[in-house]
Design a protein around this nucleic acid. Structure first.
Lengths: 347, 347
DNA sequence: CTGAAAGCGCTTACAG
DNA sequence: CTGAAAGCGCTTACAG
């Protein structure tokens, strides 16, 4: 910056103002400064700028995993929208209970960001409390945590929608295939969808049979394994509600490997709106991931006082906004395709 | 830091040394300082530290998209390994030609990182040249760019492996299903696998028929569309080599929708080692993504002079290392499953 | 409209 | 082993 100032024949204070677009710099002076900066291919040092301004221009996004479709899609969207607002994204992947423990212990994001987004991150109660040490705004997406601002779908209602669809088709023996992390940390979405399954069956006067609720470890063949277990039961289900589309896909493949037809012999419904559901023509409950990402970013921008274009919000105005609810529960949509139909025995 | 210094009764210089573990601080003094820092829940400001040390402790990872399996898996691994080495990851998603143009124009990562990793990023020649303005080390993964250090598989050889497998089974009418970005930017992996297909067919004395090379736009049903086009041909192929496992999965689904059996009526082979290949029992060429990620991180650490544990490398030693080749071409592996078999007409 | 100066929170030769 | 001081590269009241 000193170089630019010298070349332009002004002080570094003026260069700083001109480059930041602050008022109080002559039209002509400003133009000259910009021209010099351009010619020298100069860009302001973010480190120094942040040190002075006491903000980082960064937000941390923390995910348990990145490869599963939900996370990859959410993160991709969030990163893009934050960038549009002029914010950089620091990504942390904390897989498994030990790494999560280490993360909240060390808090590597501390003092490095203006806000952090926790994406469907299972935390134990004691881990949740350490979050306060972050010293920055926290937004929870894909779940809720304490009283922190959150963006989510209502997983109980998601399960109700799926069960209603199957019951409406005439199914009475409806299984639930759920997944689980290996540890004991409560995985919110899974717990709620599972609870929604049993709740809603009872609501329809059906008793949820425990042997119809199978839990499998995540993996490419998880759904296949689940359906194998279900088909070994004396009283087989005629329909399956799977925690996710990936699991539902496995259930379909497993059913076909066992010689069953879908949907004639077994109806299958998943959750997500995953491309694999479109490929295999699976009925699903779409949870509108792109919109969840958009609302998450909106909340973040609100908390750090920026607009979607990256402009700072007028502090006076900001106070008014603060009254708005920061947490939001988004809608989901039933997408009926060819993997669900009335049970053949119901005709 | 001033607070800690006051509490511990020393200067901030000593606090800095103690906390960074630099030599020249008394055992006892150091212990006391650490205890105070702990009690005050103090952590060094990375901004200030970096400003002083002239390094950021960050690396940028740039991807065209995040949702596709290859990218999500690579990024997840890279982020984790960088974190183990004490480095943070700044993620940029630059989808489509305009965003890529904007990215190299604005270079948002400039002065924010110690190195940048370009992940299979298609760039035009003029865009490549602007990379020099980044002013930091660049590592290319999943492809190569100019003379920059790179980590990749040999996509020509990948195609050869796939074609050899099909020819070895007795196939002579072998189709290639490739994908494409919408713009004209050369997509290295696609071009090479496509070229490898025709090259290798000729090598086996077979003429690559252009109508057997179909290009589809990426999407969940891309493979389905491709196979529909192929089946409309007067002389149908007996085998398909698909650019990726996701595409191969679509081809299998499309073939079955058309009433064909896989592999009896159509053999299908993909590339990646994607979980969907395991789910559908597809033959594939595994490109060992986790290893590509590991080698990429190794290269980055080498360039920024760190060990995998995050320790700085002794500068003297580092010079010696610099002689090592920074670019590496990794092996791939043919994984034979049930989607490929001899053509039924070949019996 | 513009500049001199203090300050952001560290690190590291340089002296003791 | 420890401290005073300069410096990292900016930003922003405070004066003109």
């Amino acid at each position: 910056m000193a170089d630019v100032a010298r070349e332009a024949g002004v002080s570094i204070a003026t260069v700083s103002r001109a480059l930041r677009g602050r008022p109080g710099v002559g039209e002509e002076t400003s133009r000259r400064i910009r021209a010099v900066a351009e010619r020298l291919a100069y860009v302001v040092s973010p480190e120094a700028s942040h040190l002075s301004r006491r903000e980082t221009g960064r937000v941390a996004v923390v995910v348990p995993q990145l490869a599963p479709w939900f996370y990859a899609t959410m993160v991709g969207e969030v990163v893009r929208l934050l960038r549009d607002a002029g914010l950089d994204t620091l990504l942390y992947e904390v897989d498994g209970p030990e790494e999560r423990g280490r993360f909240v212990e060390e808090l590597p994001a501390r003092r490095k960001v203006d806000a952090v987004v926790l994406l469907a991150l299972p935390l134990t109660p004691s881990q949740r409390d350490r979050l306060d040490l972050l010293g920055v705004r926290v937004v929870v997406a894909g779940g809720r945590l304490r009283d922190l601002p959150h963006v989510e779908v209502d997983d109980l209602a998601v399960a109700h929608t799926a069960v209603d669809h199957l019951v409406g088709l005439g199914h009475r023996d409806i299984a639930m295939v759920r997944t689980s992390d290996t540890d004991e940390t409560p995985w919110e979405a899974d717990l709620l969808r599972s609870r929604g399954w049993s709740e809603r069956l009872r609501h329809h006067g059906l008793e949820p049979r425990e042997e119809l609720r199978v839990t499998v470890e995540i993996g490419p063949r998880a759904g296949v394994e689940a359906v194998q277990r279900l088909l070994a039961l004396p009283q087989r289900p005629t329909a399956v509600f799977a925690y996710s589309d990936e699991l539902a896909a496995g259930v379909v493949v497993g059913a076909r490997e066992a010689g069953l037809r879908v949907p004639e012999d077994l109806s299958v419904i998943g959750v997500d709106g995953h491309p694999i559901a479109e490929l295999l023509d699976l009925t699903t409950v779409d949870q509108h991931v792109a919109e969840q990402a958009a609302r998450t970013v909106t909340t973040v921008l609100h908390l750090v006082g920026r607009t979607a274009d990256g402009d700072p919000v007028d502090p006076a105005e900001q106070v008014g906004h603060a009254a708005e609810p920061l947490s939001v529960v988004l809608d989901h949509t039933l997408v009926v395709r060819s993997s669900t139909a009335p049970p053949s025995s119901a005709g």
